[in-house]
């Protein structure tokens, strides 16, 4: 099974970068695939080799192999996600992100490693799992009204809460009121005595 290739090879190849650079690119691709929880050394090696092969065929002057290789990974993933998730799956969101989230939620690379990024038919169950695993799905936003009233201004009866309590120092008021009450009580008491 071939890795999913979406772009034509460049007709004119630029001077090849060093093999060390391609090795580094291959290592990066393998790391990236591992980061998708793709296990199995043989599967990883085969996929990496296929991707590097495509990237080598698309060399552009001044572009590092690692960049080319990762662009290729991205292109392959984009094509595979489009196939698995169907047209319009991204719903305005980046397809790659939507697809990666679906991979994570469906544990697809662990359950169906042999189909990941490969051309050809994929199991119906894989498609179902990935399509249902949409983390971005939420109830539609139905904007409701829950606006707080405007800040209350002194001496304005708004019909809403007239929260202005005329005094900016409520505790001074409370303490003063208490003191007055106590004084009055004391005065009456003393007068009574």
């Amino acid at each position: 099974m071939e890795v999913m290739n979406t772009q034509p090879a460049s007709p004119k190849l630029p001077p090849a970068p060093s093999e060390a650079a391609w090795s580094a690119a291959a290592e990066r691709v393998e790391r990236y695939l591992r980061a998708h929880h793709l296990a199995g050394d043989r599967q990883l090696a085969r996929l990496t080799a296929d991707i590097i092969g495509i990237a080598r065929a698309r060399q552009r002057p001044g572009v590092e192999p690692v960049t080319l290789a990762m662009e290729t990974v991205e292109a392959c993933m984009g094509a595979w996600f489009a196939q698995v998730l169907g047209a319009g799956a991204a719903d305005g969101r980046p397809l790659l992100a939507r697809g990666r989230a679906a991979l994570a939620m469906g544990e697809v690379t662990a359950r169906w490693p042999e189909y990941f990024l490969r051309q050809g038919a994929v199991p119906v169950e894989l498609i179902r799992v990935m399509r249902e695993a949409d983390l971005g799905r939420r109830p539609a936003v139905r904007l409701g009204h829950m606006a707080p009233p405007p800040p209350a201004k002194p001496a304005v009866a708004t019909g809403w809460l007239r929260l202005q309590v005329s005094c900016r120092w409520p505790f001074v008021r409370v303490v003063t009121g208490l003191a007055v009450a106590i004084s009055l009580a004391g005065t009456f008491w003393a007068a009574g005595l």
Binding site: H37, A97, R100, A101
Partner: peptide, 9 residues
């Protein structure tokens, strides 16, 4: 890639 995708979602 997964955390990034979850975050982006």
């Amino acid at each position: 890639p997964y955390v990034n995708a979850i975050h982006l979602s």
